[in-house]
Structure formats: structure tokens, C-alpha cells
Design a binder for these strands. Structure first.
Length: 448
DNA sequence: TCTGGGGTCCTAGGACCC
DNA sequence: TCTGGGGTCCTAGGACCC
């Protein structure tokens, strides 16, 4: 439980995280608009650099629209291995402040400062947070915005207040005055639907919401949401910082470049996604009882079908079998744009797994490999050997670089890294044997 | 403008049990 | 013959977050 009189909760939020890592590792992109996200026809923007935001580009926007707004930005597919590594470094630095760190995503976390700093006051909190920001910058080369307050709610709002590269400490005594004039949409958990509902009944600001009638809110938003929101508006948020939350579900899904109608295609893709889910379950030592299939149709309507087994499983075959049965009962004739598989109701191990270890299940490897699918065509771009924009590569003659673009049998590479000047570009045949995929470049904090 | 992929939490109704 | 109340599990859908 957090003490409402002590500024003991810190929220950290890396600035334009994915785009910032790209600019760090690719000198030619520094100071330029960079957009990371889906680069295909149905992709959306994951992160836009601040230079790209000037053009009106933002998260969740269709990449096609972003391209119209700023055709000259760099559009990159993302390098999650690199992002995970930077995230791990930042979370390690957070753990030096307190053992209680609650990651919300790769680029965000809460830290319970009070748990490690008895007698914390506003000045001490500011010093701790400032030192942390400097440490992140030195270790990763990135800027992080930080909010410190008496609760998760206010710390999170604070970290967003003066982004990027900002530190905002909200003294508990000033909290109410800060929140009152803010839009209800500022509250995490109030999205488009809830926001519109509140505004429609005249509740535009947090101050107005604080004076609302609880029964009315509960009628409008449901028990949990109604009561929580009223408490938040009144500055009441006792949620503790919780480290190590256990996963509740594992899933994989894919949006196709072109809607699919062929059941054999769909079943095959479902099976491959089941393989990925099973592999991730196994890696985490988990298994689950409920298998879910998600289908998004041509018109974006989405349905889920689930089935709970009498036992927990992490078997790719069993997940695929059940998912396939569920899919068989769904009408796909009009076209499916997205298909997904998930497993929930997780537990740490299962009898079946223990038995399987003694007597391994047949690993039908001949069909689980990612061979090209049979009927090749209407799946969108011709299956180029898979050079993705932004990808790290190595050339036997030119050294490390990254893919700037590919197509028509060619791939263009820029040869540079986090500690080089802006590099030169060269174009190769896309099957050039001298060119190979590479891991992320190493960022050296000691480099001058 | 035409909407990703990975998640979390909540609600509501029906089955089933005591 | 008609009718209880509460609890748990399951399924489906939806809002929201990064």
C-alpha cells in the first residue's frame, strides 16, 4: 500500500523508445523523422520519433497514412532483440533504486522508492530520480522521462507532463490542484469510449469527476470501473507496486496481407502459431488449460472461441488440434484478415509435461519447420528472402550495417553503427552470399 | 485513415452444486 | 409442484494499455 503523504512512487517512461534506439544505432537517422512499426500495407505505427510527430504521425496510426503525411521519414520494422536488451539495462538500473520494480512494458515501469528510502521527502525523491535519469543516459545513450508522486496514478500522469527528457515531482500537497483542471482522458484507463461517456454527462475534468455521484458512475461504467475512477479523481489510489506479476496468457496472432478464405491455409497458419505459443510456454515452464482461437473477419468484426481442457498442456500438437476444432466451427467464407491462438489458465507445470519428459511426444519436425506455404500467391509481397527495413546485417567486405530498403531483387545497406560517422550506402543483389543477417550492434557507454 | 501484436481486467449469462 | 440464494466455473465480448 502506498502512503498518500510520501512521494514514494516513481514512474519511468523511455522517450519515443523504439525510434530512439534506432537513432542511437543509426547515425544517419539522428535528427530525422523515424517511424517504427508494421511496414506492410496493413501495418500501424508503433513509435514515431519526435521529428516525425511534427508531421502529425503518432502511435497506432496506419503506416499508410503516416507515409502520406511524411513520405521522407525512415520506416523501420523494428528490432525487438535490441529493444529488449536496452530495456533490461534500464530495469537493472531501476532495481538499484529499489527491489520493488513493476515493469509495464519494455519502456515503462513503476518503482517503489519508499520501500528502499525510509523518510523520503520531495527533495530526496528529486535527487534519486535525477541520478537515475543520468544513469540511464550514461548507460544506454537514451533519455527517460520520470514522474514521482504519492501514487501510481499521479506518478504516471507526472512522467507524461513535460516529455521528453523530463523529471516531474508532484508534492502530495499540490496533487489535488494539479489534477482538478485536467481532462478525464488523462486518467489511465479512461479511453475513447469511457471518455466520451463521461463528457456526455458533463464530466469533462478530473475536478468535475471528483464531485460526481458514485451510484451514477457505477450505473454508467460498471461496479469496478465506476468506483475506481471516482477514487482516482479524488486522488485516492492505494494500489501497491507489485514486482514479478505472473503471466496469465500466452498468444500469437497474425494479420494477413490479403484476407484468407481457404480453410487449409488457415489451418496451416494456425498450426504454426500454435508451435510458437507452445515454444514460448515451454521456455517459461508454463502450461495452460484453456485454448482460444481469435478470428477477425474482413469487416474487422472479431470473435473468440475457447475451450477448457481437463488438464493443462504446452503441447504444440494438442494446442493446434483444439484450436483447429474451434476454427472449424467458424464461418470463414467471407474472408479472414486476422487469426490468432492463445493459451490461458496457466500453471507452472503439469502432469502431462512430466510424463512427456519421460516419453517425449513425437516432434513431427518434417511439418513444423517454416517451409514456404503451399499455394504461394495471394499472401501479398513476393516472399523476398526477408530483408526487413532497419535490420542489422553484416557484409564480408564492408562490415556491419543495416538494411535501408529492398525490392526488385536488390537490397540497399547503409554501413554505420552507434559509434561511427554517418555511413555510405551500397546496393547488392538480395541473394548476395556476402550479406548475412546480424545481431544488434553493441552500444559502448565508455565510447567517447 | 482504415485500423498490429502482445497483453490485462471486467461483465454477464448459464451450468452446476450445495 | 414451485421456488430459495450463494458460489464457482466456463464462455463470449469489450474496453483499455503500450
Amino acid at each position: 500500500m502506498t502512503d498518500p503523504s510520501v512521494p514514494g512512487v516513481m514512474h519511468l517512461d523511455l522517450d519515443a523508445f523504439f525510434a530512439a534506439v534506432e537513432q542511437r544505432d543509426k547515425p544517419s537517422l539522428r535528427g530525422k523523422p523515424v517511424v517504427v512499426g508494421g511496414t506492410g500495407g496493413r501495418g500501424v505505427v508503433s513509435t514515431a520519433s519526435y521529428e516525425a510527430r511534427v508531421f502529425g504521425i503518432g502511435s497506432a496510426m496506419p503506416t499508410a497514412r503516416a507515409r502520406r503525411l511524411c513520405p521522407n521519414a525512415a520506416y523501420l520494422a523494428g528490432r525487438f532483440e535490441a529493444y529488449r536488451e536496452v530495456s533490461r539495462q534500464v530495469m537493472d538500473l531501476a532495481h538499484e533504486l529499489s527491489p520493488l520494480v513493476e515493469p509495464l512494458s519494455l519502456d515503462e515501469a513503476f518503482v517503489d522508492l519508499a520501500a528502499a528510502h525510509p523518510g523520503l521527502d520531495v527533495e530526496a525523491a528529486r535527487t534519486v530520480a535525477a541520478d537515475f535519469r543520468a544513469a540511464v543516459r550514461a548507460r544506454t545513450g537514451l533519455t527517460v522521462s520520470v514522474g514521482v508522486a504519492a501514487s501510481k496514478l499521479v506518478a504516471k500522469i507526472a512522467s507524461d507532463l513535460r516529455k521528453p527528457d523530463a523529471l516531474v515531482v508532484v508534492p502530495p500537497a499540490e496533487q489535488e490542484a494539479l489534477l482538478a483542471p485536467m481532462s478525464v482522458r488523462t486518467i489511465p484507463g479512461v479511453g475513447v469510449v469511457t471518455g466520451d461517456r463521461l463528457v456526455r454527462v458533463g464530466l469533462k475534468t478530473i475536478g468535475a469527476l471528483a464531485a460526481a455521484d458514485e451510484a451514477e458512475l457505477v450505473r454508467m461504467l460498471g461496479r469496478a470501473h465506476g468506483t475506481a475512477l471516482l477514487a482516482f479523481a479524488r486522488g485516492v489510489d492505494p494500489r501497491p507496486v507489485v514486482a514479478e506479476r505472473e503471466a496469465k496468457s500466452v498468444s500469437a496472432e497474425e494479420t494477413f496481407a490479403v484476407d484468407l478464405t481457404d480453410r487449409r491455409d488457415l489451418a496451416e497458419r494456425l498450426r504454426r502459431m500454435a508451435d510458437r505459443v507452445a515454444a514460448r510456454l515451454a521456455a517459461a515452464g508454463l502450461s495452460g488449460r484453456t485454448v482460444t482461437v481469435k478470428v477477425r473477419r474482413y469487416d474487422f468484426s472479431t470473435l473468440n472461441r475457447s475451450r477448457t481442457l481437463p488438464h493443462a498442456t504446452s503441447s504444440a500438437r494438442e494446442i493446434a488440434q483444439n484450436a483447429g476444432d474451434l476454427l472449424d466451427a467458424v464461418d470463414v467464407a467471407d474472408g479472414v484478415r486476422l487469426l490468432g491462438v492463445g493459451v490461458s489458465g496457466l500453471s507452472e507445470f503439469s502432469q502431462i509435461d512430466l510424463l512427456a519428459e519421460l516419453e517425449p511426444e513425437p516432434q513431427d519436425t518434417d511439418t513444423t519447420e517454416d517451409e514456404p506455404l503451399e499455394s504461394p500467391q495471394p499472401y501479398g509481397p513476393p516472399a523476398a528472402p526477408g530483408w526487413r527495413p532497419g535490420q542489422d546485417v553484416q557484409h564480408t567486405g564492408f562490415g556491419p550495417g543495416w538494411v535501408q530498403g529492398s525490392g526488385a531483387g536488390r537490397v540497399t545497406v547503409r554501413f554505420e553503427g552507434p559509434h561511427t560517422p554517418v555511413g555510405r550506402i551500397r546496393t547488392f543483389r538480395d541473394d548476395d552470399p556476402d550479406l548475412t543477417p546480424a545481431g544488434p550492434p553493441v552500444f559502448d557507454p565508455e565510447h567517447p
